[in-house]
C-alpha cells in the first residue's frame, strides 16, 4: 500500500466482457474505489500465471482476474481454459502464502457495470482489512533503491 494506506490492486480483465463492464460502470457514473489498476487483455485465456506473479512481485496488495461468464467467451472457450488453470494456481499460491484475500476471480459481463463497481468496492474493503501485503508477500521484489534514497513522492511501501 502507498503511504496514504490505499491498497494497490491490479485487475487483469478481458476486453469483451469485464472491461466493457468497467466501462459501463464509468459511463453510468457509478462510484467505486479508485485503487484498482486495470490491465486489459483480449481474453482471460491470455492471462498467464506469470502476469499474476509479476503483479505480486511488483508490490500489488491484491490481484483481480475477471472475464466473460462461462459460455459467453468471445473466443468460445478461452475462459474455460483459464478457469482450469486458476483452479490449480490459486491453490498453489495459497499453499505458499498468497491466500484468497489477495487473489480474487470473477465473471463480469458487459452489462454488469453495477457488479463491477460493487466488486471493486468489496475487494478494496477486504484488502484494507487484510492490511498491506508488502511484509508478508513471498513474491515481492525487494530490490529497488531504498525509499529514503528515492527522490520525489515515495512510491514503495
Amino acid at each position: 500500500m502507498s503511504q496514504a494506506g490505499a491498497p494497490r490492486i491490479t485487475a487483469f480483465v478481458c476486453n469483451w466482457c469485464t472491461y466493457a463492464g468497467a466501462d459501463l460502470a464509468g459511463t453510468s457514473r457509478l462510484q467505486y474505489a479508485p485503487e484498482v489498476r486495470i490491465v486489459k487483455l483480449p481474453c482471460t485465456g491470455r492471462i498467464s500465471p506469470l502476469f499474476i506473479l509479476k503483479a505480486f512481485e511488483g508490490g500489488a496488495d491484491a490481484v483481480l482476474v475477471s472475464g466473460c461468464h462461462p459460455g459467453d467467451c468471445h473466443y468460445t472457450s478461452g475462459n474455460y481454459h483459464a478457469r482450469r488453470r486458476w483452479g490449480l494456481l490459486r491453490k498453489l499460491l495459497d499453499l505458499t502464502g498468497i491466500d484468497s484475500r489477495r487473489l480474487q476471480f470473477s465473471w463480469i459481463s458487459a452489462a454488469e457495470g453495477q457488479k463491477f463497481a460493487d466488486l471493486i468496492n468489496d475487494l478494496t474493503a477486504k484488502v484494507r482489512e487484510a492490511g498491506p501485503f508488502a511484509g508478508a508477500n513471498p513474491a515481492r521484489k525487494r530490490l529497488a533503491p531504498a525509499p529514503e534514497e528515492a527522490q520525489g513522492p515515495r512510491r514503495e511501501s
Binding site: 511488483g58 508490490g59 529497488a144
Partner: peptide, 11 residues
C-alpha cells in the same frame, strides 16, 4: 538490470 518504480538495480 532489474527495474522497479524507483529505479534500476544492476545485479
Amino acid at each position: 538490470d532489474e527495474s522497479g518504480p524507483n529505479g534500476v538495480v544492476r545485479l
